[in-house]
């Protein structure tokens, strides 16, 4: 199976590559349009800042490529956010796969910290991506979140309920880091590779 991990300037993706290797897959870390188009699965990971990430994707023509794929596609963390319509971070127009706004957590109540950092529950619709996830705690590190919408397939609650997971057709996304989320994360990655 050919798995492409999209290369763009969005932080360290080594952990995602290691996680795939643990599952017996040697992914291609690439920004090459043709390699991405012809992959069986595409993973869009990353940490980083939305506007510089989008600028980079546009400069490589990857915004067009990523939105016109038909194979299973998985966005992780900022990957999920960039798949939405718009992000408050840097007032950025994103890829628009999900018709949702990405907002910054506001600390309304004493006791909530930003970033949302640590393990939290992902309550899902038990669809294919989440099958056999026994203990739905996932590891989160983020200051921005996607609202809940019709494409939401999993909800996480921190300050307010937000989209912990999204799906539209072949496009899947999770806000948490499955590559760092112990057995639950590994199951999700395995499920994705089996779609």
């Amino acid at each position: 199976m050919k798995v492409a991990v999209v290369k763009y300037n969005a932080g360290n993706v080594q952990s995602v590559i290691y996680a795939l290797q643990r599952l017996g897959v040697n992914p291609l870390h690439t920004e090459d349009q043709q390699e991405i188009r012809t992959a069986d699965k595409v993973i869009f990971p990353g940490q980083g800042e939305a506007s510089s990430a989008m600028d980079y994707l546009r400069s490589k023509g990857l915004d067009q490529v990523l939105t016109s794929l038909t194979q299973p596609f998985l966005g992780i963390c900022i990957g999920l956010q960039l798949m939405c319509r718009h992000s408050e971070e840097g007032d950025t127009d994103c890829l628009g796969i999900f018709d949702l706004e990405v907002k910054r957590f506001k600390v309304h109540q004493h006791g909530f910290k930003v970033p949302h950092m640590g393990w939290n529950r992902l309550e899902t619709d038990n669809s294919q991506l989440f099958q056999a996830v026994e203990n739905p705690f996932m590891y989160y590190v983020h200051s921005y979140y996607a609202e809940v919408g019709i494409e939401t397939t999993g909800i996480t609650d921190y300050i307010l309920p937000f989209s912990g997971a999204l799906q539209k057709d072949n496009y899947y996304a999770v806000q948490a880091h499955p590559e760092k989320s112990s057995d639950a994360g590994q199951t999700i990655l395995t499920n994705f590779l089996n779609i």
Binding site: R22, V141, K180
Partner: peptide, 8 residues
């Protein structure tokens, strides 16, 4: 460690 461990 990173290649073996799946927690942060």
């Amino acid at each position: 460690v990173a290649s073996k461990i799946n927690i942060p």
